[in-house]
């Protein structure tokens, strides 16, 4: 019989709001840019990780959601063999465009190394791995929309084959100051069944 898995916790970030397991944890009441919102949220969740400020927007978004989720868990992520499986629609386009801007003028050609290193979508997985000292399986997928059917199968494959003990999955999308993160932890314990239908419902919450 197939072993059941659960969604132990889930975090959403969009429209200046962060919610954990369906409850709003932080909200910027006034309209604000992602730059200001992310800075306020970083302080609110008491992150204390100065490297955060050097990251691109996609990595900031992924890391804030992960931090909020891990802070709610009574474990040391480093010891839990947590695989990472994130996905989005636009890859690293936000940073790619910044890099392109810096090399567009042949007479004023100064690409920034600090921007260039973020011109791959899976760098945000690297940032999460560095922050929590994870040396685990990771994959980043690009698709038109969130694909719970595919991600569910992929995550359970990692768990069933013993490649991971838990899997942090989700959707992190950032383009043109529009952002959306939905991150959840798949585990052997929890109350929400790890099923595609459950994820579709939580994602739309």
């Amino acid at each position: 019989m197939k072993k059941p898995y659960f969604i132990s916790d889930y975090v959403s970030i969009w429209k200046n709001t962060l919610s954990l397991n369906g409850e709003t944890l932080f909200n910027c009441s006034q309209e604000t840019s992602f730059k200001d919102f992310s800075k306020s949220l970083y302080k609110h969740i008491d992150m204390n990780y100065p490297k955060f400020y050097k990251m691109d927007n996609l990595s900031k978004l992924a890391l804030l959601a992960t931090e909020a989720l891990f802070k709610n868990k009574n474990f040391n992520p480093e010891e839990e063999n947590i695989a990472l499986t994130l996905s989005n629609k636009s890859g690293s386009l936000d940073t790619d465009l910044k890099h392109q801007d810096s090399i567009a003028d042949e007479t004023n050609f100064f690409p920034s190394p600090a921007v260039f290193v973020y011109t791959l979508a899976n760098i945000c997985l690297g940032e999460i791995s560095i922050k929590y000292k994870l040396q685990t399986e990771n994959a980043f997928f690009v698709s038109e929309s969130f694909q719970p059917d595919f991600i569910t199968v992929y995550a359970e494959q990692l768990l069933q084959t013993g490649k991971a003990k838990k899997v942090l999955c989700g959707w992190v999308e950032y383009t043109d100051d529009n952002y959306e993160a939905f991150i959840y932890l798949v585990d052997e314990e929890g109350t929400l069944e790890h099923r595609s239908e459950t994820l579709k419902k939580l994602y739309l919450e």
Partner: peptide, 9 residues
């Protein structure tokens, strides 16, 4: 090291 490259730029 990335900061060092930024300083060179």
């Amino acid at each position: 090291s990335i900061d060092a490259l930024e300083l060179i730029v």
